[in-house]
Design a binder for these strands. Structure first.
Lengths: 210, 210
DNA sequence: GTCTATACTACGATAGAC
DNA sequence: GTCTATCGTAGTATAGAC
């Protein structure tokens, strides 16, 4: 079906060039079909863009479901919560580094800069669930009851992972290396894990001071 | 001069909508001049885009120069280096939150997604210097000699700040607050400072284990 | 220097053949 | 369902008046 090919190409093209930067002719050509197929299947460029967002949300949900550490419950036990948080951050970083999800990341980062309805569809689905769960895990792991603290901390933890995508060009320059290098990714995983432990311990210490 | 007004508007428009998303007609109209002024002053849309990048680089340099903590030497003393790192991260976060530099951040984040010559001009100037200095500060503060470790750590520290810009839409959703709220920014500053201390202490502990 | 007028190109939408 | 052909409408570039 041209429908599916169009979606695949659209996610890539919209991610790399943005809504205005990508052209329907270009997408159709890359998908090996006529431009008017876009009108037929999706009603137009905007429709295709939203469909791409839904496609990403769906794929994210699948990824999260297939026994990955991104979608289990929130354990009460601090140690278990911490382990789940570690697994989640590692999974995020490695998944974001695969070629397939690289297109998603770009799409999503773009939507952060200027959110459209597409962001609602992605955030309203798997992304929001993931971030809320991460905040809950931080709270459980550090015994924090103030959810505002847990959320802010969660975002700084997430930032450590995000930087490899949202500042990929700068990272590549500073490190003088391609960010797809598995060894480099492994180094980030180790560093982020150590940082996370340090941060959680610090949170626990802060709590005990009171 | 229409030249300067065009640049101001261009930074804002390109930052928000990207190169393709912004239109020369729109920029000229917002600057209160005719579109052909862009051709006269900058040679065309691409020229204006690059000029906007240079303008940002220049403004960043000015900001860095005006007695801010972003551009002093790298102290040998670990405590002084740590203090300088703290000052730098706080300055970054607060500067990135001002309305004026918000346009820069967006411009730069866009350039990370698909780097053009504009990125070379910004990274080759103040941005690269800043990141290299931050890595040096991490190395000095934690007594790390392996610069690869210092750079990776620096990037994770930077990520904590970056997340408030590059994932601003998601942050606003999770926190149910506008990210320009000074109180919220202050909370981020405190959290990132505490995290940074925890991470540096952890690095020092790692070194002593060997 | 700045503006008006115009030319040219590429895009997205649409109608209709198959 | 898919394609071809065509239309209207942006967009940028350019020439020339002031």
């Amino acid at each position: 079906m041209a429908h599916d090919r169009l979606l695949e190409v659209a996610v890539r093209e919209f991610g790399q060039k943005g809504l205005e930067g990508a052209s329907t002719r270009g997408i159709a050509a890359a998908a090996g079909t006529a431009m008017s197929s876009i009108t037929y299947h999706f009603g137009g460029k905007d429709g295709l863009y939203l469909a791409a967002a839904d496609y990403i949300a769906g794929q994210m949900t699948d990824l999260v479901r297939e026994g990955s550490p991104l979608d289990e419950g929130v354990p009460d036990d601090p140690a278990a919560a911490r382990a789940a948080l570690h697994a989640m951050l590692e999974a995020l970083l490695t998944k974001m580094s695969t070629e397939r999800s690289e297109a998603w990341s770009l799409f999503i980062v773009r939507e952060q800069i200027r959110p459209t309805e597409a962001f609602d569809r992605i955030y309203g689905g798997p992304m929001g669930r993931m971030m809320r769960r991460m905040a809950d895990l931080v709270a459980a792991a550090a015994g924090v009851t103030d959810m505002k603290v847990a959320r802010v901390t969660m975002l700084t933890l997430f930032g450590q992972v995000l930087v490899t995508r949202a500042a990929q060009a700068a990272c590549a320059r500073v490190l003088e290396r391609d960010l797809r290098d598995p060894e480099l990714i492994a180094q980030f995983v180790r560093r982020i894990a150590a940082n996370t432990d340090a941060i959680l311990d610090r949170l626990i210490a802060e709590r005990q001071e009171k």
